[in-house]
Amino acid sequence: MNVFRLTGDLSHLAAIIILLLKIWKTRSCAGISGKSQILFAVVFTSRYLDLLTSFISLYNTSMKVIYIGCAYATLYFVYMKFKATYDGNHDTFRVEFLLVPVGGLSFLVNHDFSPLEILWTFSIYLESVAILPQLFMISKTGEAETITTHYLFFLGLYRALYLFNWIWRFYFEGFFDMIAIVAGLVQTILYCDFFYLYITKVLKGKKLSLPA
């Protein structure tokens, strides 16, 4: 464990909690892409099946349980409890255009052709593009609630911090996982446009509104 991975995990946890609180406090999931939340739940489910087969540490297990629990709680909020506030008309990204290539690639490029390893690879590739429906929805509505931008900031920051974690681990432990690194780079690059808007607008107290 190093400072980048720890702060990355905490940033990820913060994002997940911020989203849950936003929906719970405002009793509304307006502006939230249910499709991205479905993809994140699929990412966690396919990646954390090893909860059933191996124990790494109390931290590892508890964080995985929290991530999975919050992901499904968010889905429950979006598609059941606060379903009336879900803006389906703007959440129209075709997720099959993500699932098919990612599914195919995870069979072609992986470290080991075993079920758990292919599922892990699938979750890594899927996570790198899972935010696209959410970013697409914001581009369609032309704006995002400030609390939603904080959610996106911490979510994007977490994988950026993981990139530093991988540099650290390569330098000090000689460990590197090319699949995770390339996917993590793609994931972080997808946030660059949002990071620019977040830093130049939201942090200056303005609302995030895209040139519609």
């Binding site: 991975r5 995990d9 990820h12 090893d50 191996s54 790494i56 540490s57 590892n60 964080m63 995985k64 991530y67 470290h111 080991d112 390893e117 892990w120 993981y162 974690n165 460990f175 996982d177 995770a180």
Partner: peptide
């Protein structure tokens, strides 16, 4: 190639 290290990252 076999990825010997366990998946210790989240």
């Amino acid at each position: 190639e076999e990825n010997d290290l366990p998946k210790d990252e989240l």
